[in-house]
Nucleic acid binder design. Structure first.
Lengths: 137, 137
DNA sequence: CAGGATCCTAGTCGATACTG
DNA sequence: CAGTATCGACTAGGATCCTG
């Protein structure tokens, strides 16, 4: 039976455990999951591209300029898994795959607008603060 | 004078330019800046730690468990630069540095709550969608 | 006490080439 | 057409050590 009376843990070790525990329930934290999704570089573009109606894979690739096939697929798969959009395969030659926002995905739009509104309303203050900070540093 | 009549650009080159152009104004896009801030791993914790009142550097380090000095300082500097919190140095031996939310930083709290509320309200649907997706894959 | 400086690692992003 | 597979480049995060 081990004796722990004099076991010493460094601050780094304590932090390590704490971070792992924290990361564990961070992954389960709804707010953070949502923020992680929302702040993803491509998610916003894909969602707003689909806001006007369904699009096919290559159409998305053209509308969301700058996205490589890999990133596009990755983004679409994640959003599909989370129920934000639906993927429909139409059997034809060549095959047609159509992506469309679900109700859940469409529910995201007002929130995006709210965030955008907050940002546009307060960003002047942020820029002013930065100017001051950068100026007298 | 160069002749560009037959210059050919690959799809990748076109994407590269497009992405650079996009990234350029992404950095200036208020919405994305805000989301980048909000979704940062430590920002939320620091802000909510300071919601109840000012704290000193090492107090923050204890409350925000798992943060290394580097990350803590980095987070604090960014938030200070953006005018979200204020940093006050009190000359003493040893020196005391106190951090406190500004009005702008406090304005962030309702928005955080709104995001949290949306997440908690909709996350069951997301989890249900994931269960379906993971199940019949 | 409150950080700055340095080095290192692990995960992410994107290009490219290939397939049903 | 709608992807998948693989590989290299990059960089954010963190450990560690040091200073006014």
């Amino acid at each position: 039976m081990p004796y722990y009376g004099f076991v010493t843990r460094t601050a780094a070790e304590v932090r390590l455990d704490a971070r792992e525990a924290y990361n564990a329930n961070l992954r389960e934290c709804p707010g953070h999951q949502l923020l992680a999704t929302l702040s993803d570089k491509w998610v916003t573009l894909v969602i707003s591209a689909l806001a006007d109606g369904p699009l096919r894979y290559n159409e998305l690739g053209r509308v969301v300029v700058g996205a490589s096939p890999k990133m596009l697929t990755q983004t679409l798969r994640t959003l599909e898994r989370d129920g934000m959009l639906s993927r429909e395969v139409i059997v034809a030659v060549p095959v047609i795959v159509s992506y469309e926002l679900t109700d859940l995905g469409r529910d995201l739009l007002p929130l995006q607008r709210a965030i955008k509104a907050w940002a546009e309303h307060h960003i002047p203050q942020v820029h002013a603060a930065r100017a001051v900070y950068d100026g007298d540093r």
